[in-house]
């Protein structure tokens, strides 16, 4: 009875997936509409894409978002990996419970609360020390704080399942603890580092609420620009922009998925060969 799925279930599944994709498909359709009115089909046109290339506001915001995203994901992978090592390798230290709490809290904390409290901190800091001025820097600081949590949790689970015997062997052969870790365990957790880097990048690129709260005049990320345009009503160039973003991200996810599946298959083959 393994592969017998009732037609009713199949129908629900297909309808569910269709419902997930229908709005996106419709939006992609609108992006090629020559008419600016959504209710009228004015024929096929790529004019909204051409207009997008000349929209400096959107291009600048996209560049800023990417720069912030790369710094944030790199910074939070470093901090999150350190936190994961601390939590897995050091079972007892002062502040361990505090660290566990601070790593898990951002996952249940509504973004708007995190954002408002961080803004209040930045305002007070600026008042007291004259630093930091609100803008890209405060966005980066705030993003690293919540991305670190996701990195820690991803890397922690990988680190827990990583075999320590190789590292111990390296130490017995004379490697220092740091050298042994870098040579043996780091390659084992590298996939987790890569995927948490990508996850942080996605979270940072997508964040609207915290960015809008902690940013100052002059620093507008892509979601902030999109949000202010969308709030005013329909804007056909946003359809084009959304189509580009969705296709790009979709291609990346499918590409990464295929690569990972191939690597997994290769690993399985290798272990089978080794066992023979």
């Amino acid at each position: 009875m393994e592969n017998r799925v009732s037609p009713l279930l199949i129908t629900i599944l297909c309808l569910g997936i269709a419902a997930l994709y229908l709005p996106i498909a419709v939006m992609i359709g609108y992006s090629f509409n020559a008419s600016a009115l959504v209710s009228v089909w004015g024929g096929f046109s790529t004019s909204w894409y051409a207009r997008l290339l000349h929209n400096d506001q959107i291009l600048d915001a996209a560049r800023l978002s990417l720069q912030i995203g790369v710094i944030v994901s790199t910074g939070s992978v470093v901090l999150g990996t350190l936190a994961a090592i601390a939590l897995v390798r050091f079972q007892r230290f002062g502040g361990r419970l505090l660290l566990i709490g601070m790593v898990n809290a951002p996952l249940v904390m509504p973004e708007i609360i995190t954002g408002i409290t961080q803004l209040l901190l930045f305002i007070s800091m600026l008042h007291l020390f004259g630093w930091p001025h609100r803008g890209a820097l405060t966005i980066i600081i705030a993003h690293i704080a919540f991305c670190t949590s996701y990195v820690t949790i991803t890397v922690q689970s990988r680190l827990q399942s990583a075999d320590r015997s190789l590292e111990e062997a390296a130490m017995d052969l004379g490697a220092g603890p740091v050298g042994a870790f870098i040579d043996t365990t780091l390659p084992l957790i590298a996939p987790a580092l890569a995927s948490s880097w990508l996850l942080s990048l996605t979270l940072s690129l997508d964040d609207l609420v915290i960015s809008s709260l902690v940013s100052g005049p002059g620093a507008s990320t892509l979601p902030m620009v999109i949000f202010s345009k969308v709030k005013l009503g329909v804007s056909p160039d946003i359809n084009a922009l959304a189509t580009l973003i969705i296709c790009l991200v979709g291609a990346c996810v499918i590409f990464a998925g295929t690569l990972m599946r191939r690597a997994e298959r290769q690993r399985l083959q290798d272990t089978q060969l080794a066992e023979r």
Partner: peptide, 23 residues
């Protein structure tokens, strides 16, 4: 080991926990 523990601990303390004290 404190070189490993302190950076994330301090960062989250200053930029995640302290803000609630300010709030």
């Amino acid at each position: 080991k404190w070189l490993i523990i302190l950076p994330p601990l301090l960062y989250l303390f200053v930029f995640f926990l302290i803000p609630f004290a300010f709030a």
